[in-house]
């Protein structure tokens, strides 16, 4: 029996192997651009960054860099601004990520209803996320100006004392959190696409069981949206760890009063480009990579408990 099977298989292999090989090469060909890009733009810079993080590299030819082992990493332990910038970044993440998620999800829910001018509303809510961040930052700089800014003028008009949004260290981070909500449009679009993928029958089933809006949200929408929530949460977290441009424009390279808005990437930037401590900045970048990796793994691990993929 075994010999018969072998005889049957052998001719078939001799016929299909070249075709399979060709198919494999076509597959490799398709992934080649990504692979080359990954090697060139990710793997090599990653390796170089790790290497530079263990040198005293400043600027100029890389041959001038001297190997100093883990000295840069040890230095972070004594760097007050490293700790402060990390703490500021975590504060920002704790408020910005969930608030953006809630806002994007809420607006997506509203835009998933059948109302007039739906297309207009969708466009209006999405536009902010494609406005250049520099332009938006400068607009916010004016809006939050304590004397002439629109926010304080409105607050004053309704009897609230003006707030020093950008000059009082107690307010700078929360101001940046408020500003960060501006970019919720990208997450909203992802939520909206996912919402539109929920089968209508499931809503009808809830209606038949006598459930209202709350029941639909609790038993249908949120469970089916958990993969999207997970995705947006992960992407939002990674982006928030790298918060830089808005804070840099609004508060300057040192992060405003008492470095209250000095975020991790700004401290890294200062070391790299203002102090020319590229080696130390590379080490900081690697540490940020490890932190983000740890959070990502933690979230993936916990996702088994709360993310529902439908086929489970």
């Amino acid at each position: 029996m075994a010999s018969v099977q072998k005889r049957e298989i052998a001719p078939s292999v001799s016929v299909t192997q070249p075709a399979r090989k060709r198919q494999r090469w076509i597959g490799y060909l398709f992934i080649l651009p990504w692979f080359v890009s990954m090697i060139w733009f990710d793997a090599i810079p990653f390796g170089m960054n790790l290497y530079l993080g263990m040198t005293d590299y400043s600027v100029g030819p890389i041959e001038q860099a001297n190997w100093i082992g883990l000295e840069n990493f040890e230095r972070m332990l004594d760097d007050d601004l490293f700790r402060q910038s990390l703490a500021n970044t975590i504060y920002f993440i704790v408020f910005s990520v969930p608030l953006t998620l809630i806002l994007a999800f809420s607006i997506a829910l509203l835009l998933n209803t059948r109302i007039r001018f739906l297309g207009l509303f969708r466009t209006v809510y999405y536009i902010p996320s494609i406005i250049p961040v520099v332009a938006a930052s400068i607009i916010f700089l004016w809006m939050f100006n304590a004397r002439a800014g629109a926010i304080n003028q409105i607050l004053y008009a309704i009897g609230i004392d003006p707030i020093r949004w950008l000059t009082n260290p107690d307010y700078t981070k929360i101001t940046l959190v408020i500003i960060s909500l501006w970019g919720f449009g990208a997450q909203m679009i992802v939520f909206l696409a996912a919402l539109q993928g929920i089968p209508e029958q499931l809503y009808e089933a809830v209606a038949i069981d006598g459930g209202g809006l709350r029941a639909r949200l609790r038993h249908i929408v949120i469970p089916l949206m958990t993969p999207t929530i997970f995705f947006n949460l992960l992407v939002g977290l990674i982006a928030s760890f790298q918060v830089f441009t808005t804070a840099y424009i609004i508060l300057g390279p040192n992060g405003g009063p008492l470095q209250s808005g000095l975020f991790y990437m700004m401290h890294t930037y200062n070391n790299a480009f203002r102090y020319f401590e590229m080696g130390y900045a590379s080490a900081m970048s690697f540490v940020l990579f490890l932190i983000i990796l740890a959070f990502t793994l933690l979230m993936i691990w916990t996702s088994n408990r709360w993310v529902y993929y439908g086929d489970e």
Partner: peptide, 9 residues
């Protein structure tokens, strides 16, 4: 803070 706000505009 007041000086910074005054000059910020």
């Amino acid at each position: 803070e007041a000086v910074r706000d005054f000059m910020a505009g």
